[in-house]
């Protein structure tokens, strides 16, 4: 078990995955042309984590922008979390959206409708 930190760029988010305390954070913007390539390492880390997860995992998603190509990859990340949750581990996905950003709130609700993991929608001031 370890910590994974991927620094953000203008097109990709900062990722902080601390497998010791059970914390996954994705922050910033996710608009790469090739999102599969970007998210592949995270999905692989999650697969390893899923074999011996913490009993409690907190997930913070705080995205300013994301493109439709990333939306599929984010769903893949959530599906990995869903399987960890299904195995009896607690997981909460905190979905942050800026005040008045209805599109981002709706995007969170779309995932909430698909993924069987508790979501918490959290509004933040601009």
């Amino acid at each position: 078990m370890e910590k994974v930190i991927i620094e953000g760029t203008p097109k990709t988010p900062t990722i902080n995955f601390d497998m010791i305390v059970g914390l996954l954070e994705i922050k910033g913007r996710s608009i790469p042309e090739n999102s599969i390539e970007f998210y592949k390492p995270l999905v692989e880390h999650l697969e390893r984590y899923a074999q011996k997860p913490q009993s409690n995992t907190n997930v913070n998603i705080q995205l300013e922008y994301f493109n439709t190509s990333s939306s599929k990859c984010i769903l893949d990340v959530f599906k990995k979390l869903e399987s960890i949750h299904k195995n009896g581990n607690q997981i909460v996905i905190n979905w942050y959206y800026e005040q008045d950003d209805e599109d981002m709130l709706e995007a969170g609700e779309d995932y909430q409708a698909i993924i069987n993991v508790p979501f918490k929608m959290i509004e933040v001031q601009e």
């Binding site: 042309e33 090739n34 999102s35 599969i36 439709t68 190509s69 939306s71 599929k72 769903l75 779309d110 409708a113 698909i114």
Partner: peptide, 19 residues
């Protein structure tokens, strides 16, 4: 959107048909 997001396959061009 949700249907394509959940069931659609990602094309090799990287698009998901969601744009």
């Amino acid at each position: 959107y949700k249907l394509v997001l959940n069931n659609g396959e990602m094309s090799d061009k990287g698009g998901g048909g969601l744009g």
